[in-house]
Amino acid sequence: MIVKRPLGEGAKPKLTPEEFINGAPDAGAGEPTAEKPKAKHVKKGNKIQITHTIQLELLERVDAAFPKMGMSSRASYINMAITQMLGRGVSFDGEKDE
């Protein structure tokens, strides 16, 4: 024979599984929870990490050039090139895009 102990003062009554789940802090007060959107970037210190695809020949040129400029990485070289292009603007078919 199973004897259930009576609830003492301050004890919480037994909840149904649905009540337990809906009472969770992240349950949204019983509303269906929406899936969080996946982050589109990864933060690394004060910078954002991205993925970039590049032609092998161009990458080889970058790898040969950055040490000649006294730079320690291809990323620093690419960042410098982007900064310079944005500062000067980019020319496509004779029209400057700023």
Rank of each mutant, 00 (worst) to 15 (best):
V62T: 01
Y77F: 11
E18Q: 15
A81M: 11
L15Y: 00
V3G: 13
R5L: 13
L15M: 05
N79T: 05
H52F: 15
H41T: 12
K40C: 09
R61N: 07
K38I: 11
F66T: 03
H41D: 08
E31A: 13
G28A: 08
D63L: 06
Q84V: 08
N79W: 00
R5Y: 08
R88P: 00
F66W: 12
V3E: 15
R74W: 04
S73V: 07
K47F: 10
A24Y: 00
A39F: 13
K68Q: 08
N22A: 08
K44V: 15
D26F: 05
N46W: 12
I54K: 03
E18R: 15
N46I: 11
M80L: 12
I82R: 05
P13I: 10
A65C: 10
P25K: 07
N22R: 09
K44I: 15
V3S: 15
F66L: 05
L58M: 05
A64L: 14
L86D: 04
K40E: 10
M71H: 02
E57D: 12
Q84R: 10
A65T: 08
G70T: 03
R5N: 13
M71F: 04
P13W: 10
P67K: 03
K12M: 04
E57S: 11
I50M: 12
I48Q: 02
E31M: 13
I48Y: 02
K4H: 14
K47P: 07
G8A: 11
D26C: 03
G87E: 08
P13N: 10
G89R: 03
G70A: 03
K68V: 09
T53C: 12
P6Q: 15
K43W: 10
E60G: 09
K47M: 13
L15W: 01
A29W: 11
L86A: 02
I78P: 02
N79R: 13
Q55W: 11
S76E: 09
K43H: 09
A75V: 02
E19K: 05
N79Q: 08
